[in-house]
Each structure stands twice: as structure tokens, then as C-alpha cells.
Design a protein around this nucleic acid. Structure first.
Length: 559
RNA sequence: GCGCUCAUAGCUCAGUUGGAUAGAGUGACGGACUACGAAUCCGUAGGUCGCAGGUUCGAAUCCUGCUGAGCGCGCCA
């Protein structure tokens, strides 16, 4: 609708220029938007106010010229008005809205998607938890957000690849092995020392017991035993992580091993390339990269005095590899405590002639867990945290995913487990699902009454939809596509949950209108009107279902 | 000390590249089921958009300063 109106508006402005009604100037960056207030029409533009300075005329005068010369040969508009300081408010003729509804019903599960691919590929890396412990709530938030962003990008025609980066090369894996081995030794000798920075969670002892069944640790020397524990412990943790994610309906295309970067010589290779570009130097027996020349606070070490690579070395190599794989964009979801790292990585990319904008990073703020009104503090060091596994035992996947997406990613989230557990109206996901189930119920009722619910319609079958509330609903349904496109740019997936909640509210309100005044019921004695209203609620149902699907939440027909 | 993020109703939070009268849920109070699901709806009350300046036709939104909260500043990963 906005595009159509914009075309008419541009034609009109050109005409005004030709007729010298307006001085010919470049067009300012105006907007066409949906006004909050129904009295302000369906769409409004601020163009006259922005033209005021270059035209040297009052905004309302300019608006008057535009309105008087408006070219609308096909009767797209019903009304044009000048309002406020110089807005132009447009009311679109109702038949246009009925065509939109017809499209929604025809497109059905495809409504909101684009059939054509954009030829733009995006690599989304998220969760990427170390395989040294189970997933916790913070990972859940990242998983819900990342997966939903991917679903939306995919729906809107992007080629999306979901990737999980496995840190399986560093000292943390060694430490995992040491922790497991120590726990195993402690089973016989409780006084055995536990490694200083070891992993303290109960799962370490479980792993030790499992591994002891599979391997005869007592016959091994300490070194062999630890590396055995490292290797098997890592594999088992990874399996757990995959299981949790699968249950959470998150599916990765690629599981990328950090260790492969070393095994395939990619780290060495990227170092070579950077050396040739003169981006590296040696100082104090270590190897440094000149990130400070590209916006970082200071240069960084990538190979330590002892000959070991830093984590940063493989990370640079990893991101260069992502770029070489040919993606037009990359998106990383990181915990907010990594924010100091963004500049560093981007600087390293720039040192390799890659534009910093190629990579976007979303920082996900902390999740605080509340139980019975009390905050449950999580501490990885003490092994105290609520795991995804614990969460999924208590809570519906639907509810968890929805609640994770009720706040912007850059603001801390209070996760009230008692609220999420409740199967009542305290829980926003059921409010949306209820609207869907209610519509399904209306269709069951209509079918019982022998009404043909096939909905093979054209816009002339919909002319019964005359109430403001009915047109408003269609207008809101039309906003779905634009919302999704906006999320593709900003990655603010939480806006979809708000949209769906709002859509459900609008539907419930419309539905209740009919209860007070029997004349506004959906199923009436007027068959023509009944079919039109069934079409309207079918449109609502379609958008709720498609939207919930993008959130990874089910749309039940009965609850 | 430097840097990143945040600050909106009693509470939890939305607010789309700056737009018209700042919204929702929840809590409080009062209403609506003898025909489509009351897991719903309607109404009332509740605001110095942290504070102070600035930019302009117009600021919760952009800029500067201040206050407060969280996080990060390693040859750790």
C-alpha cells in the first residue's frame, strides 16, 4: 500500500514541478507512515513540512498544492486531507483493503514470505557454547533469538546458514579433562586435589562415572587418562548440547570445529597472509597484530611468548574463513560480556581488507532467573546455574521461546519461571495461541451449521466488511510483511512477539464486539456477510500461525 | 581511569529511519456470558519519558554534560 501511494505521490509532485506549482528541488527524505490515530486516515506523509524550507512556503500551503493537483486515475484513494502542521492524510478506498485480505487467504502459509531469493547469503553464528558444560538460560535466549532471526531471514528470501562454533582447541578442553579425571580420582580418594580453575558442576562427576565404565582409566598414565577424559568428555557434552537444542527446536546447518582451523593449517595460512600485508610484528618474544591501526584500543597478541596461539588467533582465522566462504553478510550473537571484543575482531577484519560492516554483532544481555519471587543467582565457577535441560523439564518449549523474545536483546531479561510455567493468561504465549484456537473453533462451529468454509473468494465476496474495526484488522494484517523486513535489517525479533500479541488483542476485541451487539457476530443469518467475516478471521488466523511459526512456537487448533 | 549497554505508569516492559493526544501487560477498583471458547472483553485510576542544556516546524527518539545501574578493559578462553 505504501509503495502504491508513494508512486501516486511522486507522480503528483512531478506534475506540480512541470506545472510550476512548486519549485523543482530534490525530494527530501520524507516518510509515509501509518498514523496512530484512526482519524488521521490510513496513511500519512510529512512531505510538505520537509519541503517548507526549500520551497520557502508554509507547510500547509504546500500540502494544499499537492492535494489540489493529486493524480489518482484509478480511484485508489477515498479521501485526502491536510492536517496538523502540514501532514497529508490519505484514506484508501475499501476495495483495496479487501483485495489485500483476498491475497492473504490465497497465499495462506506463504503470506508474508517472498517467493524470490534475493541472492543475498547470511551466515548466522549463535549459541557457540563451549563444550565444557551444559547449556544454561543465557544460551537459551541466544538460541531462541538466533533461530527466530534465521527463520525470518529465510522466510524473506535470504539464504541463511546457521552455524555453531565449537571451541574444542584451547586449554578449556584440557581443563575439562583434568576436572573429570580429578573427580574420578576423588571417588577413591576424597582428599585428591581438584584443579584450581576446574569445572565444579555436578555433571563433571557424572561424566567421570560414565567414562570410567567405558574406559579403564586406572590402567592409564595420568597424561593419557586426562586426554581421554578431555576427548570423551567433550564429545558427551556436545551430544548433550545438541540434544537440548533439538528439543528447543533449534537446528544448525554447520557445527564448526575450532580444532579444524589448526588441523587444516588455516591459522598458519592467515598468519602468512597478514605477514605479507605487514600487519604483524614481533615484540617481547610474542607476535602481535596491528589492530590499533584499524580502530582497536591497542595492538593484540596472537602468538604468545611460549609459542601458543591466543584465542584471538583462531578467531581471526575463523572469521576470515567465514568471509572466504562467500557470504554477503555475517551475524554473530554474543553474550554482552564480549562487547569489548567486537572492535577487536572488526579491526582484524579491516586489516585483512574486509569492511567492518560485513559483520554484525548482536550482544545478548544477561538472563536473570526468578523463582518464587527470588532471584536465583547463577555462577559458572561454583557450578550453580539453571541449565536448559532443567528448564525444558519444567516449561513448555512454546512458552520458553516466546518469553525469551519479549525483550530487546540489549536489555537484561528477567525470566520468571513460575510465570512461564503457568498455563493461564499470565503467560503471554497462551493469549496469542488462544486467539488462534478460538478462530479454529469458530470455523468448527460454522461447519457444524452447514456453512461452506472453503473460502474461494474474490474481493466482491468481502464487501460486507464495512465496520471500522474490520478495515483496521486488515490494515494491521498488511503490516506483517513490512515488520518482517524491518526485523531483517534491525534483528529486533522481539517486535514480532509484540505484533502477534497486539494482533491477538485486536482480534479478541473484535470478537467481543459481536457478543455485546448480536449484529456484529461472525456467524450471522446473512450468508454473504458471514462468509466475509469468516474470511477476515481466517486472515487473522493465517498471520498468527505464520508469525508463531517464525518464533518456533506452535499454533494449536484447540487448547 | 577508559569503553560498551541500559534508565519510560506501583511492578515488568513496548514505542518502526525524529511526527499529531507516549502505549500494553500486571497489580488496584468497577462492570460484561440464556447464541460463534470468559484462557476473553469494557471502564476508572496511575507519567517531570533519570536530571540539565542543545539541534528544529516538531524530541522518549539525535548531540553534549551530569547522576545511577550492569558489563568489559590479560602474552585468559
Amino acid at each position: 500500500m505504501k509503495e502504491k501511494l508513494n508512486d501516486l505521490l511522486k507522480n503528483t509532485i512531478d506534475y506540480c514541478f512541470q506545472q510550476e506549482q512548486l519549485k523543482e528541488t530534490p525530494l527530501p527524505d520524507y516518510v509515509i507512515e501509518v498514523p496512530n490515530n484512526r482519524d488521521h486516515g490510513h496513511l500519512a506523509t510529512n512531505l510538505p513540512m520537509l519541503l517548507a524550507s526549500s520551497q520557502k512556503r508554509a507547510p500547509r500551503d504546500i500540502a494544499k498544492v499537492i492535494v489540489e493537483n493529486f493524480k489518482d486515475p484509478e480511484g485508489f484513494l477515498e479521501k485526502i486531507e491536510i492536517a496538523g502542521p502540514g501532514f497529508i492524510n490519505f484514506t484508501i478506498s475499501s476495495i483495496e483493503w479487501l483485495k489485500i485480505l483476498k491475497d492473504i487467504i490465497e497465499l495462506n502459509e506463504k503470506y508474508g514470505s517472498t517467493a524470490s531469493k534475493r541472492g543475498e547469503s547470511v551466515l548466522v553464528e549463535f549459541v557457540s557454547a563451549n563444550p565444557t558444560g551444559p547449556l544454561h538460560l543465557g544460551h537459551g535466549r541466544g538460541a531462541a533469538l538466533g533461530d527466530t532471526i534465521c527463520r525470518i531471514l529465510d522466510f524473506r528470501g535470504y539464504d541463511v546458514v546457521r552455524e555453531f562454533y565449537i571451541n574444542d582447541a584451547g586449554v578449556q578442553i584440557r581443563l575439562l579433562g583434568e576436572s573429570i579425571y580429578a573427580r574420578w580420582l576423588q571417588m577413591k580418594n576424597p582428599d585428591h586435589l581438584f584443579p584450581e580453575n576446574g569445572y565444579h558442576g555436578d555433571y563433571i562427576l557424572d561424566l567421570a562415572k560414565e567414562i570410567a565404565v567405558e574406559k579403564d582409566l586406572s590402567s592409564m598414565d595420568e597424561e593419557t587418562a586426562i586426554s581421554t577424559c578431555s576427548e570423551i568428555g567433550k564429545e558427551k557434552m556436545l551430544l548433550e548440547i545438541k540434544k537440548d537444542l533439538e528439543q528447543f527446536r533449534v537446528d544448525f546447518d554447520i557445527w564448526f570445529n575450532e580444532s579444524e582451523l589448526f588441523e587444516k593449517g588455516l591459522v598458519a595460512k592467515s598468519l602468512e597472509e597478514m605477514k605479507e600485508k605487514d600487519e604483524l610484528y614481533e615484540k617481547d618474544g610474542a607476535l602481535w597484530i596491528k589492530t590499533a591501526s584499524y580502530g582497536d584500543d591497542k595492538d593484540r597478541v596472537i602468538k604468545k611468548q611460549d609459542g601458543q596461539f591466543t584465542y584471538f588467533a583462531s578467531d581471526i582465522s575463523y572469521h576470515l574463513d567465514k568471509h572466504k566462504r562467500g557470504f554477503s553478510r555475517a551475524l554473530n550473537l554474543w553474550g554482552a560480556d564480549h562487547h569489548g571484543y567486537i572492535n577487536r575482531v572488526k579491526s582484524a577484519l579491516k586489516a585483512n581488507d574486509i569492511d567492518g560492516n560485513w559483520l554484525s554483532v548482536l550482544l545478548i544481555q544477561l538472563v536473570k532467573l526468578f523463582k518464587e519471587g527470588q532471584e536465583i543467582r547463577m555462577s559458572k565457577r561454583a557450578g550453580q546455574y539453571v541449565t536448559m535441560k532443567d528448564l525444558l523439564e519444567e516449561v513448555d518449549v512454546d512458552a520458553a521461546r516466546f518469553v525469551f523474545l519479549t525483550k530487546t536483546h540489549d536489555s537484561a531479561l528477567d525470566f520468571d519461571i513460575d510465570m512461564v510455567k503457568k498455563h493461564d493468561n499470565d503467560n503471554p504465549v497462551y493469549y496469542v495461541q488462544y486467539a488462534h484456537a478460538r478462530i479454529c473453533s469458530i470455523f468448527r462451529k460454522a461447519e457444524d451449521e452447514g456453512i461452506d468454509i472453503a473460502l474461494n473468494i474474490d474481493e466482491n465476496d468481502l464487501t460486507g466488511l464495512k465496520l471500522d474495526e474490520e478495515v483496521d484488522l486488515i490494515r494491521y494484517l498488511e503490516g506483517f510483511t513490512e515488520l518482517l523486513d524491518s526485523i531483517c535489517k534491525s534483528f529486533e525479533a522481539h517486535r514480532l512477539t509484540y505484533y502477534l500479541t497486539d494482533l491477538a488483542a485486536r482480534f479478541h476485541r473484535y470478537f467481543n464486539l459481536g457478543i455485546k451487539d448480536g449484529g456484529n457476530r461472525i456467524i450471522t443469518e446473512d450468508l454473504h456477510l458471514t462468509k466475509a467475516r469468516l474470511a477476515l478471521v481466517a486472515g487473522v488466523k493465517t498471520v498468527i500461525r505464520n508469525g508463531l511459526n517464525l518464533l518456533g512456537v506452535s499454533a494449536p487448533e484447540k487448547m
